[in-house]
Amino acid sequence: MVQKIDMRSTLLSLTILFVGVFIWHAATHVPDTGPTGVELSQGEMDTLLGKNMLSEDIEYYATQGVEFAQLEQIASLNLSRSMIEAAGGIQALGISAPDENSAPAPGSLFPSPTQIGKELWATIADPFYVAGTNDMGFGIQMGYSLLRVLIGYSLSAAVAIPLGFLIGMSPMFYKALDPFIQVLKPISPLAWMPIALFTIGDSELSSIFVIFICSLWPMLTNTAFGVANVRSDWVNVARTHELSTTKTALTVILPAAAPTIITGMRISIGIAWLVIVAAEMLVGGTGIGYVVWNEWNGLRLDRMIVAILLIGVVGMLLDAAFARLQRAVAYAE
């Protein structure tokens, strides 16, 4: 049964992917020829051939979009194609023909799936090249972003989790700190950027600070909530065994609250990854967010889209890592 559902869902996913790519392809597909070719009936063909027009010439003009009436005129000139071209084309001879420049503009500037595929492949094949400050492999740029997230996020966890324990275990601290948390939490992480740039100065440290701030709240509130809501029965077990507060925190409250804490950490890493891209767009220099901005400015949309795709993939991997951690600490009551 489960297998059947798995199989069906995979099938559905593939279908959605296929349809999506097809629509994308159709929307960005640019026909090679400007004007559309003209189909000639067998009778018309015979008429033209009867006027001594070469079949390859008929073919050529027809694909150029020249209608039968005009073809008859060309035939009556009794000139070969090379001679007509030498004379400046059929227009120069007074025969109306579709204007090459009036052909519909190429579908759009937006890259097609094949272009993206090629670009993606090139990126994966050589992710770590360095050809200048603005031209580095996406692997390196991604590394910069990940490093910033890692530093900011770790610092944040180092503050949020112990503080969350304190708030969760002590109603006094909860009451004292709650107003600050409530005010600071809803501030957009990027709103901190000017303050950070002004006070810290360094743009690198500022992005790390912004990551720190945006990761802080979900971890802090989830830890506090998880710790405060540990079943009193379990705490009573610790109490009847005369465990010290630290020992209780580590051997009972931590494992009991771990699923909630990891949920907070998972939310935080997601937000941090969202914010780093925006922060790097703002600050510039290096990082995958900067790449998106830079490629956009240079109108290299295919590279930009590849960067965006990779941001999604890395974000997914980060989330999957925490999902795995979540499963590891989960318990059934």
Binding site: D233, W234, N236, V237, R239, T240, A258
Partner: peptide, 19 residues
Amino acid sequence: GPSLDRGVVFQNYSLLPWL
């Protein structure tokens, strides 16, 4: 306060579910 000299078997067992 509680003490190791008083051992308790709780009505709802109170086992730690992750152990």
